[in-house]
Design a protein around this nucleic acid. Structure first.
Ligand code: ZN
Ligand code: ZN
Ligand code: ZN
Ligand code: ZN
Ligand code: ZN
Ligand code: ZN
Length: 799
DNA sequence: GAGTTTGAAACT
DNA sequence: CAGTTTCAAACTC
């Protein structure tokens, strides 16, 4: 995109040119019209080790590197880029699919694929990328035991291959079983079997498959073989929403990070969030670097699990459960993996946690929110599709310190259990009580179907972090609520708890058969999260511009319109119950298994203060309907297939085209199971189409405006940031003072005007974006030009 | 913001 | 299971 001249470009922050490009990735293979983007959130945790080792580069540098890479990708001709950052312990693959729509519609081949290593380290290992089918295969051959060398080298033999729309991540540990993330072709042919509802067209899905032969098996935890077997349908959980050409939907970002820890090292993780295509390493001041790592025990066979934990809990069918096992005493170094074969049958997604000692952690994270991700330094999670429900089970017996972090936009919860007494590892950034608990390690990988893992350390008190008042940090991101919950067994379980099905929130599970007295309490992740909400401060360097008000303090975060469209997880709407005490399914909070938080309800019992009543209510509901807490709609996002109301609606007067209709509300069409009368919510329905168009138009408008504003503000702030220092040093840059408020406003107006114009003329979004960017280029040119001129004058005067 | 409409949940 | 009531959200003005 030649919006800005090279000359100008050199003067501008990379981000200016990069952001947009990175945001969208067109996958137009055979079907140009259906661009499918795979929105994923990328939470790329970086272990603190990596920070250290990679340290040659400052975070900022990394960011730049990342952006640079991204920029490179966006070059004409290349369609998607893959960024691999092989920091010592980490390995991130980020297929950024770049692009401004304008440039993108060409080939699908990945010829332009760029692989770059972030930080100072380069990948020494061979990576193979095959553009063939949009498939990325990550093969990890390295063993966890690898020591420093291994770290440095990242993982030997990594193969990344992108073919079609499949994204394969293969981890070949000793077991040699690869993990494959597959993105089926979107063209309308489901790459994989779909259970789509009656009406919908197939949508791309993200699947995890082990290459080993079994069909879809997500590999959890250990690299070894089958840890958990998920049903094919479960794998579908990750759904990739189809992107409408017109709307700027979330970009596809995918980051896979694999961390290899050397033995004995305590895993520390820092998170590298990818923001708008950029990779930023953040350190959270609040948290200790410690973290949850996904460990991939190489040597362990899944089944050989010496007494460690297990984790499986099936929750609601569609819901995802995260099981965390608590590490047993730190002393054990042996790797323990847990095999969790159980529950496979349930249609649920199971997350197995494995506790391996010093194994190499693998982290995979996908996120959908491009923009504001703040990642806690501590955990890793793989993102799934919105709406998933996770449960957090906290062992009652032991009360671990739990710190949960939720990443905004991503539906992951990060949990850390730390022993209270532990000392902090030296060098860890302000981590209040971090324990260096190295022992508990971690966990899991999850990809859509497979969820995450949690490392847990023995802990004793469960600590919930209270939200800290946001102080000065200019950029604070609030975590959004998600519905995820984690199940964390506190004490080592030797056995798997077979049926957690339908666990309602708050349910207390009794101990496992193994004789341990561990009880589990299911706590809505949110609850924990809620407490912590404002806790994260973003260090994101780039813009300190408060204007980008992505900052919210928790209370009512209206998740600002910014990227709202792209943000999958936004804070749930507060309920307003008055008579149900929020203990009936009338209450959305309760129905979703969440505690009320920031709600407007009266006489609310849906909180920890009323656990007894709450549990009773839950039981009552379950008695009435065992599936009461299961999501009514399949996962997946707005999109397309696979989603349908479990019971169907029963509308009589709304024509199923109002939000009264649960189908419509969920943005899905009615299916044969609906018992609605006068339904107009079906594929061919003209009324529906009309409505959709209107809605789309409105959405696009909003998105464009917000996107433009956001982008602009961040770019401007970047610009200011960059120029400011230079001025003082008398460098060759332009005086930032030329970017005055007036100038900014004028620029904004120009851009908005451009947007309006595009909209009025009904131009496609791509075109609109192009025009806006172009306009921006012009504005910048003007600014720079006048600034430069002034500078010259200035100089002459001084002389 | 008050009042109405709506359909799921709860109840009988 | 069907019919009715209750409820909170969606919608309207
Ligand atoms: Zn409520
Ligand atoms: Zn509530
Ligand atoms: Zn409430
Ligand atoms: Zn309906
Ligand atoms: Zn319906
Ligand atoms: Zn209908």
């Amino acid at each position: 995109m030649d919006v800005v001249s090279p000359e100008l470009n050199s003067l501008l922050p990379d981000e200016i040119m990069d952001t947009e490009a990175i945001e969208e990735v067109p996958h137009s293979q055979s079907e140009p019209t259906h661009d499918t983007s795979v929105p994923m959130e990328t939470d790329a945790p970086v272990t603190s080790e990596s920070l250290n080792t990679c340290s040659n580069a400052t975070p900022a540098e990394r960011v730049q590197a990342a952006t640079a890479a991204a920029a490179a990708d966006s070059a004409p001709g290349s369609q998607s880029s893959i960024t691999i950052s092989a920091s010592s312990t980490l390995f991130a693959i980020k297929p950024a699919l770049a692009t401004s729509t304008a440039t993108t519609k060409t080939t699908d081949s990945l010829t332009g694929t760029t692989v770059s290593t972030s930080g100072t380290q380069k990948l020494t290992t061979p990576f193979a990328f095959s553009a063939a089918n949009h498939q990325i295969i990550l093969n990890k051959v390295a063993s966890a035991q690898a020591t420093e060398a291994a770290k440095a080298a990242a993982a030997p033999a990594q193969l990344i291959k992108q073919e079609g729309q499949k994204l394969l991540v293969t981890t070949i540990g000793k077991s040699g079983q690869p993990i494959v993330l597959q993105l089926p072709h979107t063209g309308g042919k489901p790459g994989v079997s779909q259970t789509s509802g009656d009406a919908k067209s197939p949508t791309p899905q993200f699947k995890v498959v082990t290459i080993g032969g079994r069909e879809l098996k997500p590999v959890v935890g250990s690299a070894g073989n089958q840890v958990t077997t998920l049903q094919a349908q479960q794998l579908k959980t990750v759904q990739i929403p189809k992107k409408t050409p017109a709307s700027s939907t979330a970009p596809i970002k995918f980051i896979i990070t694999k961390t290899v820890n050397s033995k004995g090292l305590s895993p520390q993780t820092s998170v590298t969030p990818v923001i708008a295509g950029r990779m930023v390493t953040q350190t959270s001041p609040v948290m200790s670097p410690k973290t949850i790592t996904l460990s991939e025990p190489h040597n362990t066979t899944i089944q050989s699990i010496p007494g460690k934990k297990i984790a499986i809990s099936p929750l609601k069918t569609p819901s995802k459960v995260t099981v965390v096992s608590v590490a047993s005493p730190p002393s054990n170094t042996s790797q323990k993996s847990v095999a969790l074969p159980v529950n496979v049958a349930l249609g649920q997604q199971i997350l197995a946690v494995q506790q391996s000692a010093p194994a190499s952690p693998v982290k995979v994270a996908t996120s959908q929110t491009p923009a504001q991700n703040i990642k806690p330094v501590q955990s890793v999670a793989v993102g799934g599709v919105g709406g998933s429900q996770f449960k957090t089970i906290i062992p009652l017996a032991t009360q671990p310190n739990v710190q949960q972090i939720q990443v905004p936009g991503s539906r992951f919860h990060y949990v850390r259990l730390v022993t209270a007494t532990t000392a902090n590892a030296a060098g860890q950034p302000s981590a209040p009580n971090t324990s260096s608990v190295a022992t508990g390690k971690p966990l899991v990988v999850n990809t859509g179907a497979v969820r995450m893992s949690v490392p847990v350390v023995q802990a004793q008190t469960m600590k919930q972090v209270a939200p800290k008042p946001l102080t000065s940090a200019p950029q604070v991101v609030t975590t959004t609520q998600t519905q995820q919950r984690l199940i964390m067994p506190a004490t080592p379980l030797t056995q798997i708890q077979p049926n957690f099905t339908n666990l309602p929130p708050g349910t207390v599970l009794t101990s496992a058969p193994g004789g341990s007295n561990v009880g589990y309490a299911v706590v809505p992740a949110q609850y924990v999260t809620q407490l912590q909400q404002s806790q994260f401060v973003t260090l994101a360097s780039s813009s300190s511009f408060p204007a980008s008000s992505s900052v919210q303090t928790q209370a009512k975060l209206p998740y600002n319109g910014v990227s709202a469209a792209e943000t999958t997880s936004r804070p749930r709407k507060p309920c307003n119950c008055t008579k149900s005490q929020c203990l009936k399914l009338y209450c959305d909070c309760f129905a979703n298994g969440e505690f009320c938080n920031n709600c407007n309800c009266n006489n609310c019992f849906n909180n920890l203060e009323h656990e007894t009543e709450r549990l009773k209510a839950i039981k009552t509901c379950l008695d009435r309907n065992p599936e009461a807490f299961k999501p009514k709609i399949g996962k997946g996002k707005e999109g397309e297939s696979d989603r349908r109301h479990s019971k169907g609606c029963n509308c009589k007067r709304s024509g199923c085209l109002k939000n009264y209709c649960e189908c419509y509300e969920a943005k899905i069409m009615c299916s044969s199971i609906c018992k609605c009368i006068g339904c107009k919510n079906f594929e061919e329905s003209p009324e529906r189409k009309t409505l959709m168009h209107l809605a789309d138009a409105a959405e696009v408008r909003v998105q464009q405006q917000t996107a433009a504003k956001t982008k602009l503000s961040s770019q401007i702030s970047d610009l200011l940031m960059r120029t400011t220092p230079i001025i003082s040093s008398g460098g060759g840059r332009l005086p930032y003072t030329f970017v005055t408020k007036e100038v900014l406003e004028a620029t904004c107006e120009c851009l908005l005007e451009q947007a309006k114009r595009a909209e009025q003329t009904r131009q496609p979004q791509a075109e609109a974006e192009r025009a806006i960017l172009e306009e921006f280029g012009h504005c910048l040119m003007s600014i720079i030009s006048s600034a430069g001129k002034a500078k010259t004058d200035c100089a002459s005067i001084n002389c």
